[in-house]
Design a protein around this nucleic acid. Structure first.
Length: 326
DNA sequence: GTTGAGCGTT
């Protein structure tokens, strides 16, 4: 098929812009959104029914109506425009709906221009729906952007749209993805305690307790001192704890990340015996040491103790004679 | 003051 230009405009009666189609006659959504940032589709007024019709779109590829693109003016769809339409689309793809859990999570935004600010991000992404969190990651000293950031939407639909396409932000193509920190659906561990990462210093135990109460009874909140940007929250019900694992929750405007309190390679067999509790038992203590990088220190200390024993073994009958009382 | 694939002061 010869190259065809499709006439696209923001509104029906506005001056259209000609958008190039692909060799197969389709039009890529990315081509449209390059000119109309935030676009999620096209619609047109049917000459027959005089009703607005949506252009078929499959995985970011727009397909011409049966009669071809023609000379009609196609109007850009934005996610905000018509929520009812979004729900219809969701209902028609019920299979996909069941698969997803419909919960929003932080998305990483890769490829940001150095100059892009959080306000820029918020302005851009608000065209997809309500934005509840944006971050631009910066170097602590210089304040320079690291070229990536995070965004979180209220609506799951907004998130879906944003992931599905590339984004032209301040002149650069950016990608939005699930961050690596989001653990997939692996086998659940049965701890009642969760690890709360990315805490800020102003979060108190009371505030954390108040916040997590909404999910279930909280039996303990532990914040290490001095400040180390994480906390432990223990629930009465392990199912509550597990249901939160992998989630990004927003506390006082800060996105914290919930994960299992036990490490993945942890010594699970001891837990199952019930001989070690979930509080400050031996296993948990070792886990804590490993997580906080004190493990190596302890190992070094142990080596020194062994060295001490051997150095003093010459004057005694046994290397362990210092253990004896007489 | 520089850069351009990545992953959030655990």
């Amino acid at each position: 098929m010869a190259e065809v230009y499709v006439r696209v405009a923001e509104e029906e009666n506005e001056e259209p812009m000609e958008i190039p189609s692909e060799d197969d006659g389709t039009v890529l959504l990315s081509t449209v959104s390059a000119q109309f940032p935030g676009a999620c589709g096209l619609r047109f007024r049917s000459p027959v029914s005089q009703c607005m019709r949506g252009v078929r779109i499959v995985e970011g590829v727009l397909h011409a109506p049966e009669t071809g693109w023609g000379n009609m003016v196609y109007v850009v769809n934005y996610p905000k425009d018509n929520k009812r339409k979004m729900e219809e689309i969701d209902a028609s793809s019920a299979v996909k709906m069941k698969r997803g859990d419909m919960k929003t999570s932080d998305l990483i935004v890769l490829g940001l221009p150095w100059k892009t600010t959080e306000q820029d991000l918020k302005d851009y992404f608000s065209t997809f729906g309500e934005v509840i969190m944006v971050q631009v990651k910066r170097d602590g000293r210089s304040g320079n952007s690291k070229g990536f950031g995070f965004v979180r939407f209220t609506e799951y639909e907004s998130q879906e749209k944003v992931i599905a396409q590339r984004h032209m932000i301040d002149g650069r193509w950016c990608d939005c993805k699930f961050p690596n920190s989001k653990q997939g659906p692996d086998e659940p561990l049965r701890s009642r305690k969760v690890f709360v990462g990315r805490c800020t210093e102003d979060m108190t135990t009371d505030e954390l307790r108040q916040f997590f109460m909404q999910y279930g009874e909280v039996t303990d909140v532990f914040i290490p001192k001095p400040f180390r940007a994480f906390a432990f929250v223990t629930f009465a019900d392990d199912q509550v704890a597990q249901s939160l694992c992998g989630e990004d929750l927003i506390i006082k405007g800060v996105s914290v990340h919930i994960s299992n309190a036990e490490p993945k390679h942890g010594n699970r067999q001891f837990d199952r015996t019930g001989r070690f509790g979930n509080g400050f038992g031996t296993v948990s203590f070792c886990t804590f040491l490993k997580k906080t990088r004190h493990w190596k220190l302890l190992t070094v200390l142990g080596n020194f103790i062994i060295l001490y024993i051997f150095l003093h073994s010459g004057s005694r009958t046994s290397p362990f004679s210092f253990c004896k009382s007489n």
